[in-house]
Computed example of a mutant assay.
Amino acid sequence: MGTKARFTAILLLPVALAACASSSDDSKPISFTDDRGVSDQPYPKNYRAETVAFMHTYLNNPTGVQEAAMAEPVQRTVGGRLRYITCLRFSARDSDGGYRPARERAIVYVDGRLDRIIENAGEPCAGATYAPFPELEKMSR
């Protein structure tokens, strides 16, 4: 087999392997996780503890958080999928030691576990009813 033939075979190998990997039902994409989409999302039971743990790593300085408040989990459509979210409002300490006004964020849960935070949470958190969240204000380094 010549060099040119080997080169061509190497280039065509991924195409051949991809053809073998495809299923006969092309309407169902290959997925490594079971994203259950818009139905049957479980309630996030440990949302308060998970939020504190996440915020401890999310904030540059987790001490001295002020005006912390959180809303109970509710279902909202996020990214085209029905998810539980909790809305969080707080004022964190800046690097210079000062505070900015409290900002609203949404925490998204997938399969009952904290998945990500949405910085600009105006729409998902519209009409949220907040209650004090002292656990966030008591964080330490």
Rank of each mutant, 00 (worst) to 15 (best):
E123K: 15
G97F: 03
T51S: 15
P29I: 05
E72C: 08
F54Y: 15
A68P: 03
S23E: 13
V15M: 13
A16K: 09
V15C: 12
S23R: 11
M139W: 03
A18Q: 03
A71D: 12
R83D: 08
Q75L: 04
A102S: 15
P42S: 05
F133N: 06
T33Y: 02
I117W: 06
T86Y: 01
L11N: 03
P44R: 00
G122N: 15
L82I: 04
D94S: 12
A102Y: 02
D34H: 12
I85W: 00
D111E: 08
V38S: 12
A5L: 11
S24D: 13
T129G: 08
D96N: 14
N60E: 05
F32T: 12
L82N: 14
P44C: 00
K4E: 14
E67G: 02
M1K: 12
D115V: 03
P42K: 10
L12T: 13
T57D: 13
L12S: 13
E104H: 07
A49I: 00
S95Y: 11
R105L: 12
V65D: 01
T77R: 11
G2Y: 01
C20R: 09
K28R: 14
Y130V: 09
G79F: 01
Q41F: 00
E104S: 13
T129S: 15
S91G: 11
H56Q: 12
E123P: 06
G2R: 01
T57K: 13
T129L: 11
Y130P: 07
T57L: 11
G79P: 01
T57G: 15
C87N: 10
M139K: 03
S31I: 01
T77M: 07
T77Q: 14
P73D: 06
G64V: 06
P73H: 03
H56F: 10
Q41K: 08
R48P: 01
T129H: 12
R36W: 02
G64W: 04
H56V: 04
I85K: 02
F90E: 08
A19E: 04
F133V: 10
P44A: 01
T51K: 00
T86D: 05
C125G: 12
Y84E: 04
V15T: 11
Y58Q: 12
D25W: 11
M70I: 15
T86I: 12
P29D: 06
L12D: 02
N120Y: 14
P42C: 05
S22T: 13
F90D: 06
A18N: 08
I118M: 11
K138W: 04
D26P: 13
G122Y: 06
N61C: 02
A128I: 07
V65W: 03
D35T: 04
S23M: 14
T86N: 07
F133S: 10
P101R: 06
N46W: 00
G79A: 05
F7D: 13
A92D: 14
G98V: 05
